[in-house]
Design a protein around this nucleic acid. Structure first.
Lengths: 343, 343
DNA sequence: TTGAAAGCGCTAACAA
DNA sequence: TTGTTAGCGCTTTCAA
């Protein structure tokens, strides 16, 4: 049961194959009656255009890839959802691939998909700058949660976000904090610490950093234990998973959050409001970021449809989304240094 | 900068294009030295085979699609991860599409992808049986968390799982329970209730059902309120999200879990062990289910490579994975009916 | 407005 | 073992 082709449809509608092709691709270039006839015939046969045969000719696949540094990380949930949605609206297929936190896999995946997709969204890419530049010179690329100068990107406004956290801390009377860092390859992680430490100075806060930690709940224990040695009043974690792990350990050690220690995370994953106490956290990339990244990519493809990306990129293509600090229960007034610390 | 083709490679290696093709597709059919030469030339040129040009000829795309009833549902997380991993290992690309809980979208998505993929994994499909049979007669299809007789599938052993829950309940001295049902289109939901109510009888338990509820945390409040009217000692929820929402509402109403009411969910999503109290739940499809579904599909494609699926399916292709009841903190001995119920 | 024909990049006979 | 050739299903000139 071979699937029908334009030839089958053409025969049935008594027209030339090229007319069938036009009826689908450039309906305005076909007589009304003819088009009608073709469409009916196609429908009767159950004809579905073969996008790849088309791509062979046009170079456009109507498919884009989103490569994610870690598909198991809940922070990408909404991002994927938004992207998927937007891609579908534009009748594009979204291929989602997992880089498993490995630069090598990330590169490989892009390589494998070169001929299959029109462009790439790289989310929280672990690739070094020069690799990214290199990729971008060969393919259409949009970065998510990473910025690299001429490349188009959509990222949370980390500067703003960190300021929001700092101000929150100051307003609660904290005089310093300890930042539990994530993986060294994380551009976002580096950016966060940069803004945090710089901003701390301006706000007269003492900033400490410990880590790196692989940001998983299980590693929170280690982070909490290390952090406690400096008796901080506030702990910031690379992300919510780590923050949740930290809260657990604190509570296991008899410390109350936020009375004894304030804990703040990054990303606002689904679970952040499910834990007890509910986690105060800086909202991360969401469905909107996902939609925008696809839009950016689609726009790029539009302006230079062939496989050759344009040279200089428009600064308007470097989106920085405003962040929100979702204040929940895990942050509170700085505790009075006292004896709950005799652990 | 056109991407290089076999012709470019052929010229550079001074061989015929078909030899280049063979060097990649059937290396054993090419002389060692020649192959070496071709590979070097290809590498120098940065040649990447075009899978779609190949597919045009062979009918095999090395791509499979996984359509998920709701991509935002955390229960599919590990499933996707496992599938992605297994697909990559077999050098196949996995396209993940979201059916948004809509049978229409599900059908459409399959339709759109007909020519692009070799087969489909339908996870928690919302399609009626006859649609499924119809699809399966045209495409290679593997079901996940749904069973329909001759079609290959991988699902949790719901019968076993429900028995595990029931036994747990009995062992804790419960004499009945209320089941908060999920969406009516959910095959899994129906199966759960069927096993639960049948099993209850055997165990001498009184089974009640309320609902349906859209299984989201927010709807737990409604479910909890309705359920409480019958003063149950145990609440089973269609899934963990609903269960978590129920626990919240119970606690908001001053009821303690598990002292006053036992709550048990389905799926064991990531957040289940993060909430307080930690949720007792029946483990759902995981990375292993994802891997197996891909393996099944790949096997099917192997045995009948063209677009035509085989007629009768092997019963060995209906996998039923053993379940585990993850007993955490939300389940406990049946409370003594008393006055905490004067709500 | 429509048709004929060439070609996109690749594989698979069939010959050599 | 290698080359020649004919498509796979589609789009796109170019003519009619």
């Amino acid at each position: 049961m071979r699937l029908p082709t334009i030839y089958d449809v053409a025969r049935r509608a008594a027209v030339a194959p090229s007319t069938v092709s036009r009826a689908f691709g450039r309906p305005e270039r076909v007589g009304r009656a003819t088009r009608e006839r073709v469409l009916v015939a196609a429908d009767e046969l159950g004809y579905v255009p073969n996008p790849h045969a088309r791509a062979l000719q046009t170079g456009r696949h109507k498919t884009v890839a989103m490569v994610i540094s870690d598909i198991a990380n809940p922070r990408f949930f909404e991002l994927v959802r938004g992207a998927e949605q937007r891609a579908k609206a534009a009748e594009n297929t979204l291929v989602i691939v997992n880089a498993e936190e490995s630069p090598t896999i990330e590169r490989d995946q892009v390589h494998v998909l070169t001929r299959s997709v029109d462009g790439f969204i790289l989310a929280a890419s672990r690739l070094p700058d020069h690799d990214l530049r290199n990729l971008a010179s060969k393919h259409h690329v949009v970065l998510v949660d990473r910025e690299l100068d001429p490349l188009p990107s959509v990222a949370m406004d980390t500067g703003l976000g960190c300021r929001q956290i700092l101000e929150h801390l100051v307003s609660l009377g904290h005089e310093g904090f300890t930042y539990c860092a994530g993986p060294p390859q994380s551009w976002m992680g580096a950016a966060r610490w940069a803004w945090l430490s710089r901003g701390a100075e301006e706000h007269g806060l003492v900033a400490r950093r410990i880590g790196p930690y692989t940001p998983a709940v299980a590693n929170g224990a280690n982070a909490a234990d290390s952090a406690l040695r400096d008796r901080p009043t506030a702990l910031l974690a690379h992300n919510d998973m780590l923050a949740i792990g930290i809260m657990r350990r604190l509570s296991a050690r008899g410390l109350r959050v936020p009375e004894d220690v304030t804990v703040i995370g990054f990303d606002d994953i689904f679970a952040a409001e499910l834990v007890t106490p509910q986690l105060t956290t800086l909202q991360g990339p969401d469905a909107r970021a996902g939609r925008l990244s696809i839009e950016l990519l689609l726009e790029l493809l539009q302006s230079s449809p062939t496989s050759q990306p344009r040279e200089g990129e428009d600064p308007a293509h470097q989106l920085r989304l405003p962040t929100h600090l979702v204040v929940r229960e895990s942050s509170g007034p700085a505790h009075q240094a006292s004896d709950e610390w005799s652990h």
